[in-house]
Design a binder for these strands. Structure first.
Lengths: 207, 207
DNA sequence: TCCATTATTAACCATTTGGTTAAATTTGAT
DNA sequence: ATCAAATTTAACCAAATGGTTAATAATGGA
């Protein structure tokens, strides 16, 4: 059973979480079935409630873990004193690598936040969010030194995440419109590891 | 009742579709409830089945309409003989304007395709998709004339859609991380109508 | 070894939900 | 005005689903 700090995970609890991730990631909260999670974990359905009380609570446990896997990637940009251009390359590379291996993760988070905005709001309000302030300072200093043009850091982050994350989130649509199979899609994404940093650096760099 | 070509829509049928859109867009297929749609349309639940047979069929009717509202936007890029740079500005402007007024539409489509990839695949296979071939030719010619650098048209489209669509699709996450309220978000999006074309043109233009 | 606590199971339950049906009402062509 | 077809309603149904419970088994400290 879980202790007060909700940190001790028994084997059963772990296997439930693993199964719940699988099902929630793929189907989302609404379409996921407790019985399917139980089957996936080879366990009695009552155990899900024994360890997590309710479907909602189990979902929240999965969601918080998902978020904590994804959020640290942003710190490649936000909390690192490497030069800006290097950080951009690092972020794009590590994000694309990560999402290629965990394709359901970002989609899952965005999906659930969209379907239930209230849940998203209260969740974010109670999370330690990656802090962009250091990065904002870095951008401002680089602009002062004439290395890059002045740019709204929010638009910068938006551009970076958009270019990197969207193709995965809209994968179904993208592969449909561009008529890509799995191999072609992966090849394109691999290309983007170079292409995106070039594009962004080219945009902000003072020639 | 619907005729053979599924084109005649009675008032009742229209009001059902309108209500169904509202509910499906906001909640998605799995979380949507037939009773809620009926209530929204001020109509007896049996009417939903009388006109559309099943939840799945009603959903498909909504989905196809959603797709046909969104897909034509791509023709701003694909099927128009305007100069490339002008097309880019037109697309970004019209897309951002459209999605600001219809925030649930792209999210809805991407969401359902993600949750049910098989549905997405068969749907796209049976749709007249926007045809990128003309645009590919235009890009190739412009590159030959030395107006732009040679670029993979698929990457180009990917960049364009990513930068334009992602902030809306990930709105919940984006506003959470960047701590934006509704007004700030809209202002940023308005800015992007200029920013995105600049960025893309700057990337492909031969200096 | 004993026993209290914890973990696990199978059966069960109440509610929700998509869908049906039969009767009633409306519509419109003749 | 008549009547058959189309539309609408209220009541109903079976299956699915999240959740509970009471009995059983395993665990581990005294």
């Amino acid at each position: 059973m879980v202790n007060a700090l909700e940190m001790i995970h028994t084997e059963t609890e772990k296997s439930i979480l693993k199964a719940a991730k699988l099902v929630f990631y793929k189907k989302g909260l609404a379409a996921a079935r407790m019985q399917e999670i139980a089957d996936e974990a080879n366990i009695n359905k009552a155990m899900l409630h024994y360890y997590f009380r309710s479907k909602q609570k189990l979902f929240e446990a999965v969601f918080i873990q998902a978020f904590r896997e994804l959020a640290p990637l942003l710190n490649t940009i936000f909390n690192s004193d490497k030069p800006i251009f290097e950080k951009i390359r690092d972020f794009v590379d590590s994000y694309i690598t990560f999402v290629t291996d965990n394709p359901y993760l970002p989609t899952f988070i965005i999906q659930e936040v969209n379907i239930n905005p209230h849940f998203g709001k209260t969740f974010f309000a109670n999370q330690v969010m990656p802090d962009p302030s250091l990065f904002q300072k870095q951008l401002a200093e680089a602009a002062e030194q004439g290395i890059i043009r002045p740019i709204d850091p929010r638009q910068f982050v938006l551009n970076l995440i958009s270019l990197t994350a969207f193709p995965f989130i809209g994968k179904g649509l993208v592969t449909g419109i561009l008529e890509l199979d799995e191999t072609a899609f992966k090849a394109l994404m691999e290309e983007r590891k170079k292409l995106i940093p070039e594009m962004i650096i080219n945009t902000i760099k003072v020639q």
